[in-house]
């Protein structure tokens, strides 16, 4: 008993170490949120590039090819490697670690988000587009006014999942020595020569954050569904 409380004391209380966990969580969330926003912006653009209409007699548009190459490269390489490349090659001279990491995760996430959004747009009944176009609305107006708002409802749950994945995926920023929650826990364990408390502590924090997010997403989803029948 005494042993456990000593371990707890060393892992969280001694030298106010609990503050370090929350600082780590702050870094984790900062990167995840920034990357999430970047991912959604990139995802939207790439999805629209993939859905661009080819000219008569052509199979695909140039934006389609660019988008496809991007998605293929991102999905075909490990995200750790992408992070290392961004860190040590592309932005080797930058000293804003959080920003570089966010950009790296955002570019990574964008590829997955684009596929989610593309599927969400394709899931909107074709008749909606035809009705819009038959009234004389342009492709863009129809997309913006009619298709995208409906696609939003389709994509909200998978986008939420993608963000949750993103939060956990940021744990690899330890590779480029950013002190996120995971790295903080591991550093503390190496200082106290005791792994259980810091690692389980970090896991519990991740779990709670993600559980809260899941509940919020569920509530939002139910609310959006309610507006279906009014």
């Amino acid at each position: 008993m005494d042993n456990i409380s000593t371990k707890f004391y060393n892992a969280f209380i001694y030298k106010d170490r609990w503050i370090l966990y929350f600082k780590g969580l702050g870094v984790t969330m900062e990167i995840a949120l920034l990357a999430g926003v970047i991912g959604i912006v990139i995802g939207c653009i790439v999805a629209l590039m993939k859905l661009s209409e080819p000219k008569k007699g052509r199979k695909h548009t140039i934006p389609w090819y660019i988008a496809t190459v991007y998605v293929d490269i991102i999905r075909g390489t490990p995200s750790v490697l992408q992070l290392l490349i961004m860190w040590f090659i592309v932005f080797s001279s930058s000293n804003n670690g959080v920003l570089v990491a966010s950009l790296s995760f955002g570019i990574n996430s964008g590829a997955y988000v684009s596929e989610i959004i593309r599927a969400g747009i394709l899931a909107v009944d074709k008749g909606q587009t035809e009705a819009g176009r038959s009234l004389g609305l342009t492709r863009g107006q129809t997309m913006w006014e009619i298709v995208l708002p409906q696609a939003f409802k389709n994509v909200l749950p998978p986008i939420g999942n993608e963000f949750i994945t993103l939060i956990k995926e940021t744990a690899i920023v330890g590779y480029v020595s950013l002190s996120d929650l995971t790295r903080t826990a591991s550093q503390i364990s190496s200082r106290t020569y005791e792994a259980f408390m810091p690692l389980i502590g970090a896991a519990v924090i991740y779990f709670i954050i993600i559980k809260i997010l899941t509940l919020l997403l569920g509530a939002l989803e139910r609310r959006l569904r309610r507006s279906d029948i009014r």
Partner: peptide
């Protein structure tokens, strides 16, 4: 198309 109205079998009202 502004001058040609169209009505579809499946209504296609904007949901």
């Amino acid at each position: 198309r502004e001058h040609m109205g169209m009505v579809f079998q499946s209504f296609n009202l904007f949901a």
